[in-house]
Every structure is written in C-alpha cells, then in structure tokens.
Design a protein around this nucleic acid. Sequence first.
DNA 1: CCCATTGGTTTCCATTCTGAAATTATATTA
DNA 2: TAATATAATTTCAGAATGGAAACCAATGGG
Lengths: 118, 118
Amino acid sequence: METNGAEQRRLLQSAASAGCGVERTLKVLDGKWTTLVVRELLSGPKRFGELRTALGSPSAKTLTDRLRALEHQRILTRTVHAEVPPRVVYRLTEQGESLSEVLYAMLRWGEEHPLTES
Amino acid sequence: METNGAEQRRLLQSAASAGCGVERTLKVLDGKWTTLVVRELLSGPKRFGELRTALGSPSAKTLTDRLRALEHQRILTRTVHAEVPPRVVYRLTEQGESLSEVLYAMLRWGEEHPLTES
DNA sequence: CCCATTGGTTTCCATTCTGAAATTATATTA
DNA sequence: TAATATAATTTCAGAATGGAAACCAATGGG
C-alpha cells in the first residue's frame, strides 16, 4: 500500500524536532559533493579517477574525505586492487543504494521546479 | 501510475552530471538549518520566534539569512503584521509544500537506517 | 520617562571547509 | 636509469560559514 500525501504530511508533522529521520539523512549526505558522489555511484561502481572527472574535479583531498566518510557510514565500500598503478573501486552498499529513493525525490522536485528567482 | 524502482534507477543514471534536478534541489536546501526550517513549516505557518525555538535556537542572523534565501526562491512567504511588538509570519508556498516529497523520503530513509557507525 | 517585547540588523571573530601544490609508493615500460 | 600512471596524503592558505553580542525601531504600560 502506497502512503498518500495526507499521510506523509501527518508523519512529517509529528517528527520530533531533534534527532528525527530527516536529520539523520542530512547527516549522512552532509558536505559539498557528498550527494553527488552517491548519485554517480548509482549507475555502478566507479574508480577514484572516474568519480573525480564525473563530478567536475573536486580536489583530491575533498573527494577522499567524502569517500572516507561515506565508507564509515557504510554507504559504500572501497576495494583496492593490488595492481600497478593501483586501482581503487567504490561501490554502493545495499544501504547506499537505498538512498536512491531520496535522490529520486530530489531529481523530480528539481526538474519540476526550475529556477524562479528574479 | 507509480514510477517503479527500476525506472527510478534508470532516470537517476541518465541525469546529466551538471545542472541536473538533484543539484537544483541541493541548491535550494543548502546551508545549515534550511531543510529543518521547511520541515517545521510543513505543520503550518510559524512566527520567527516560534521557528527559532522549534529548531533549537540557531542564531538570529543565521535564521534570518535562511528565511530570506528561501523567500527569494519562493519556497515561503513573509508576512509582517503591523502590530507592536511586530508579528512576522512565515508560510510555505505551494512550491515549498511540494518539498514534502523530498523531506518525506529523507524521513523514511533516516528511520529505516539508524546509525551503523563503529 | 523608562522599560518590555518582537524581529530584526550589524559587526566581529572563530571555526570549518575547500582547494592547490608538493610528495609518496610501486611495478611496468622505454 | 629514468619516466609513467593511479590514488592517495600532507601542508598550507584563503574563503565561506556560523554564532555571539550589541544595537535599533515602534508602541503600550507603569
């Protein structure tokens, strides 16, 4: 059974201010690039360099920071292949993949509401 | 007709990296407190002071900044009642209310995935 | 006349964030 | 013996962010 709009509204209204699910999700997706990293990985595992290019070149430091944080939160896994030069592959966990629900809601909203600023 | 999971995946994968809907949404919900302001207003219009209290007291400056930004983006309206002391009410626009889809996805994900860290 | 109240604004400062650049490690290739 | 390629890590500097504190406006009440 699908949750309808009125029900969604009710659930959101009763969400405790502190520590509600919304805040938990915000914490996971926190920081520049983080959400976009997840979006990129939804189309399949990617190497460090591939991610960097796809995102429009965040600094290596920043991307590393984000990947490490997502790894700690079990959103993705990091696999080092013992080759030379090294190949490191990032892949979403099941938990990470489930974020597609959130990302898809964002995609839809963004497309249905183009810029309305001045 | 409901979009199914496989279809969602496909749409997310084909989202152009730059300027896709996801990024548009991220831009609107950018900054500390912003998403939570929207969540609070989903339960109805609120005064400045009510928001401040409900959110756990962000600084007046920060809250003002966020409210102004959301107003510019037509997510909410600001109504000043000519009383003394002044009463200022913030209310979501139709566009703002439609963000409930995104917030609800976040709420669900957050509740279904409690902390898994260390 | 002074105070209280609400919703700010302004100034300033500390922290955080981000990026650029230099450095590292290692096996293969020229 | 370099040079090369990948994925970092480290250091450092500048930018962006957020918060604290002080100040302001307008009017009703004591």
